[in-house]
Design a binder for these strands. Structure first.
Length: 476
RNA sequence: GGCGGCGUACCCAAGUGGUAAGGGAGCAGUCUGCAAAACUGUCAUUCAGCGGUUCGAAUCCGCUCGUCGCCUCCA
């Protein structure tokens, strides 16, 4: 089995071969920290989190670097609007992002550099570009000369003439060509600045990623990723900057994740439908959000609706119910049939090897769920022995998969108690009613028992009687 | 205007040349005091439409229709 990845650079799936055998250098564009992160950031983060985890599972020694862009026009605008220091803004939203990531169960990347920590590298890079003739200074501003770079457009499939004619950019008189973009911006009064050979200023939007890649991962990296919208111009410009400076290929594979729509509409400020991660986490479990994000292939657009999230909560519940059953039957991942486990794992990996097809991989999980329930039903019905080692293989498989997908990692008890917490249920009160109903049932007073159940149903509580006990949970 | 993606059942969604995974919803059954859960059966002779290539196509090619994105800040 070999891993195949869809490469935006070639528009096809390719066998993944890292530059150095056994080692992977992965860079993903992180957030510009000027506001709270939204569900779109969550998709990017979760997609690459799974890619990172899966590459680790495959045994790669992986360096995953994800930056924070903590200096940018948007941050400055926000600071001006709110009358706060730009550093305070950046710091606040870095913290906010980190908290969101923790809430979503996203693992920490190997490195999390900040743009402002790489100013020296940025300046050095710009100097190289100027000396090689790819950039020019106009006063204290420096621009990149797009036409000098031969491969410009190779990532986004655009050609310079089309861009020129369709250009909606306002003409900046200082540019030699309208397509040229800023590497270094001179600072106006009250704006943050760093000393540079061209005067006081700050880096342009694209240069910081080129610099941080170079600084943390080297001249050529294996995978560069980000949201689809970054293909042009951000990543196109990164290629132009990096390859012009080093003369070497910048990234061998480009991975871009698709967008998240909200109720069939694009998230945008004008529509006012931006859904922050923290809001999504208030309404849904992290489990169902991750499951939702991973239930489609990472490149397809997905639609966030309350209904879809509910469906995914139901999926998660089905998973935990089954795991609970498996555990209660006495099976465990410590005692498993190795051959069966390998076979099951191979099915899962075949899906993941095909461009991280988490949707298909999750499909495999639910096939296993049905299989496990079937065998438990069968044993119960016929009074035959429970196939503990076979179920152990399933349990083992699930624990391996949860380490990769970052879902299904809780104990069933934890999961169900979180469901109750989120629904703000007074467990003590429910328990009391459940006990009263059990007593009524024992006394064969079914009218009373049903009356209590109706009461509980009104509170959104579902009861399941088995073996003289009653399991209860909240209706999703 | 230029470039690119997508269109699979009631909904979500895999499948990119060998005869339609999975989940949810619905309906019927088994189980149950009744339920719930679980299981079983049912649920696309067909993959937007029309042509073409092929022994064979949801998968490849062409056209049409629909839809979305990028070209400007954006995950």
């Amino acid at each position: 089995m070999t891993l195949r990845i869809y490469n935006t650079l070639t528009n096809q799936k390719e066998e993944f071969i890292p530059l150095d055998p056994g080692k992977v250098r992965l860079y993903v564009c992180g957030p510009t920290v000027y506001s709270h992160s939204h569900i779109g950031h969550a998709r990017s983060a979760v997609s690459f989190d799974v890619i990172y985890r899966y590459l680790k599972h495959l045994g790669y020694d992986i360096n995953y670097t994800r930056n924070y862009t903590d200096i940018d026009d948007k941050i400055i605008n926000r600071a001006n609007a709110d009358g706060e220091d730009w550093k305070v803004i950046a710091e606040r939203y870095i913290e906010s992002f980190d908290k969101d990531m923790q809430g979503l169960g996203v693992e920490l990347p190997t490195n999390r550099p900040r743009a402002t920590e790489s100013i020296e590298k940025i300046i050095e890079l710009i100097e190289t570009l100027i000396s090689k003739g790819y950039a020019y200074a106009v006063g204290a501003d420096v621009f990149y000369s797009v036409r000098k770079f031969e491969g410009y457009g190779k990532l986004s499939g655009k050609n310079i003439e089309d861009l020129e004619s369709g250009a909606r950019v306002q003409i900046d008189e200082r540019k030699e060509d309208p397509l040229d973009f800023a590497l270094w911006k001179s600072s106006k009064d009250g704006e943050p600045w760093w000393k540079s050979p061209w005067g006081n200023g700050r880096p342009g939007w694209h240069i910081e990623c080129s610099a941080m890649c170079l600084e943390w991962l080297g001249e050529t990296i294996d995978i560069h990723g980000g949201g689809k919208d970054l293909v042009f111009p951000h990543h196109e410009n990164e290629i132009a900057q990096s390859e012009a400076a080093t003369g070497k290929p910048f990234a061998r594979n480009w991975i871009h994740n698709g967008f998240v729509n909200i109720e069939k509409e694009k998230m945008s400020k004008s529509l006012g439908n931006i859904l922050n991660i923290s809001e999504a986490l208030e309404e849904n479990s992290a489990e169902s959000i991750r499951l939702f994000l991973l239930s489609s292939q990472y490149r397809s657009p997905i639609d966030y609706t309350s209904e879809t999230l509910k469906e995914n909560e139901a999926k998660a519940e089905r998973f935990y119910r089954t795991i609970k059953r498996i555990e209660e039957a006495g099976a465990s991942s410590d005692n498993f049939d190795a051959e069966s486990y390998e076979k099951k794992l191979a099915h899962f990996k075949a899906a993941m090897d095909d461009d991280f097809n988490t949707a298909a991989a999750i499909g495999k999980v639910f096939e296993e769920i049905a299989e496990a329930n079937r065998s438990l039903d069968k044993a119960a019905k016929k009074g035959t022995e429970i196939p503990l080692e076979e179920l152990g293989a399933t349990a083992r498989l699930f624990s391996e998969i949860s380490a990769i997908l970052g879902i299904f990692a809780k104990s069933p008890a934890e999961y169900f108690s979180e469901v109750k917490e989120r629904a703000s249920i007074d467990s003590a009160e429910i328990e009391k009613l459940v006990k009263a109903r059990l007593a009524a049932r024992a006394a064969k007073d079914f009218a009373k028992a049903d009356e209590i159940r109706d009461q509980l149903t009104a509170k959104n509580i579902i009861l399941e009687d088995r073996d003289g006990e009653t399991f209860w949970t909240v209706k999703q």
